[in-house]
């Protein structure tokens, strides 16, 4: 992504999400506003059940909010265009807590997968490059069950970034790893996203990981609170709802 192009961004305006369970309406969050800019990193923290994953699904355009509006402002050489979040699909990648690699494919083939699907003839070469970037140049031909948890997550990061998405959504990316591996993965994840000029939106319980992000939010039943901004200032309270 060329640096002179204004970064694309996702904007959530007055978003609410609720669902009905046993005839009772359960509200996850209400009137939430948030902007996610390409090239920056975001961490969303908060207690279980607060709706962090739902927020991730809304941001990625995979689920519809109960009310409010989500927009995707796409910038490229032709200029800026506004789309609904449905059009975000081609520009997003995911990283999961359970890695979700395909067990029958080698690390290399797992990473090449999204490129193959897009008909990229250079899929294998690009995948090799990406695996080298995450430090797995010697483990390319290993199957997932021959790799440690940290190594599997590195493959998953390489796979999520290889097709150059503008936004990466990560659900507890270090939740399944020990302290050392988690720190490694956090560094790799953030630096790779930075290198690729992709936005990284992480849902996490890990304070260590969250601290590495440029923006940190806390989602609770009281709403979304920004705890840290891009300048690294720890904010006291900024109610975004």
């Amino acid at each position: 992504m060329s640096s002179h192009i204004t970064p694309s961004y996702i904007q959530l305006s007055n978003i609410s999400q609720s669902f009905t369970l046993n005839n009772a309406k359960i509200i996850l969050f209400e009137q939430l506003n948030l902007t996610i800019r390409q090239g920056q990193s975001y961490a969303i923290m908060g207690p279980s059940g607060a709706g962090k994953s739902s927020l991730l699904m809304l941001m990625s355009g995979l689920e519809q909010p109960s009310s409010g509006q989500g927009s995707y402002f796409k910038n490229d050489v032709q200029g800026q265009e506004e789309f609904s979040l449905d059009f975000l699909r081609a520009d997003i990648g995911f990283i999961f807590q359970q890695f979700h690699l395909l067990p029958e494919l080698t690390a290399l083939n797992n990473v090449a997968l999204p490129l193959k699907l897009r008909g990229d003839k250079e899929a294998i070469n690009k995948a090799k490059l990406m695996l080298t970037k995450v430090g797995l140049q010697d483990r390319m031909n290993h199957n997932p069950n021959e790799l440690s948890g940290g190594e599997q997550q590195r493959v998953a990061i390489a796979r999520a970034l290889v097709f150059e998405p503008r936004f990466i959504f990560a659900d507890e990316p270090t939740g399944n790893l020990d302290e050392n591996s988690a720190a490694d993965i956090a560094n790799i994840l953030l630096s790779c996203c930075k290198d690729s000029n992709a936005a990284l939106i992480m849902v996490t319980h890990s304070q260590v990981l969250a601290n590495k992000a440029e923006h940190v939010y806390n989602l609770s039943h009281d709403g979304l609170t920004q705890l840290k901004n891009a300048q690294g200032d720890a904010l006291k309270v900024e109610v975004a709802c």
Binding site: R89, G93, F94, F96, H100, L102, L113, L117, F163, P165
Partner: peptide, 16 residues
């Protein structure tokens, strides 16, 4: 099912 979910996580839809 897992394969399809993963494919969708690469930015593809159900039709693909």
């Amino acid at each position: 099912q897992k394969k399809n979910s993963i494919i969708m996580s690469f930015g593809f839809n159900r039709t693909t």
